[in-house]
């Protein structure tokens, strides 16, 4: 039973290994510590957002607002620090709080009025995008030496591979996510809610509180993703973010979490982000034209998802035959 539940997860990790092996055969300098460290820091912000998204999807919902909330967070941070002159650390706290409150607000509306999450968070997406431009109409550099130092801090591992603060945050968030999902009552409630909301209600679980908390976590992760994006570029930009929600959803689904809720793992999302990042890096190494890059990404995603489903379904049939 335990093994069968893990099949999607194992399939993802298995295909990730195949992908890395194929890529390292095709490209010199691919499977180096430096390149691997680069994949991690390039996609750390996406990974953090995807972890938040995992909780939402596990609870049976979806959060389309995360991309623009990320963009909104970068520009809010830039404005607080560079225009308002707020020191970096309090500014980061404010941005996290705002992201968290925004998510909680969406969760509150979803729960109170029994509205589809897709819809409410779609509206959140537009809202965050519009407000971003009110905060500042164009990209803004973050003028804080402390922030810049934090952003460029690198721990050298395996020779010259840089372990950045963003990478460390990503690993920390994944660890905390795993702990919350599997070792707390809240985590069990999220799974129960995604499995069947009506049963969760009957079992007397705090459905409303759990739902709101899940969207708050997602909003908070989106804000943290925004802060990490800002660290990556020491700037904020109101025009970015749209589309990142789809990347995050893709990572979660690649990681084996079902959009129907109740089934999946946070560690799967880690694998999903690595797969996504590796595919994108392979495409960059290949130096494809814009059109071919899209075609390659589409085909690789298609191949990956199809294989994953075939493995899972084959295993399901195998176990049925065995019983």
């Amino acid at each position: 039973m335990f093994q069968r539940k893990n099949i999607p997860l194992l399939a993802t990790f298995g295909v990730l290994v195949v992908l890395l092996v194929v890529a390292s055969v095709l490209y010199r300098n691919f499977l180096t510590p430096l390149n691997f460290a680069n994949i991690l820091r390039n996609y750390a912000f996406l990974g953090v957002i995807a972890v938040g998204m995992t909780f939402v999807i596990l609870s049976g919902g979806i959060d389309l607002s995360v991309g623009t909330v990320m963009g909104f967070s970068t520009i809010l941070l830039a404005r607080l620090i560079s225009v308002q002159g707020v020191p970096a650390l309090p500014a980061i706290c404010v941005v996290l709080a705002v992201g968290c409150a925004f998510g909680a607000g969406l969760g509150l509306v979803i729960h109170t009025y029994r509205l589809p999450p897709f819809l409410v968070t779609l509206s959140g997406m537009f809202l965050a995008k519009g407000i971003s431009f009110v905060i500042l109409p164009s990209a803004q550099k973050i003028d804080s030496s402390w922030f810049a130092e934090l952003a460029s801090f690198k721990l050298k591992v395996f020779g010259n591979a840089p372990l950045t603060v963003t990478t460390m945050i990503f690993f920390a968030v994944v660890s905390i996510g795993i702990a919350i999902a599997h070792f707390t009552r809240f985590g069990r409630n999220v799974y129960a809610l995604g499995g069947a909301e009506s049963s969760a209600v009957l079992m007397g679980l705090p459905v409303g509180r759990t739902k709101i908390a899940v969207y708050a976590i997602s909003g908070c992760c989106a804000a943290l993703g925004g802060i990490m994006w800002a660290m990556n570029s020491t700037s904020g930009n109101p025009a970015i973010g749209l589309g990142t929600e789809l990347d995050a959803i893709a990572c979660v689904v690649i990681g084996g979490t079902l959009l129907t809720g109740g089934v999946g793992y946070v560690v799967g999302t880690l694998a999903g982000v690595l797969v996504f990042g590796t595919i994108a890096t392979v495409i960059r190494f290949q130096g494809l034209e814009s059109s071919d890059a899209r075609i390659a990404l589409g085909i690789l995603l298609l191949a990956f998802i199809t294989m994953q489903r075939i493995v899972v379904q084959g295993a399901a049939r195998g176990s049925r035959m065995a019983t």
């Binding site: 819809l119 509206s123 959140g124 537009f126 809202l127 519009g130 407000i131 009110v134 109409p137």
Partner: peptide, 11 residues
């Protein structure tokens, strides 16, 4: 640049 806001409110 702010037109998404009214869109969001209508939806």
């Amino acid at each position: 640049d702010v037109t998404p806001v009214p869109k969001a409110l209508v939806i």
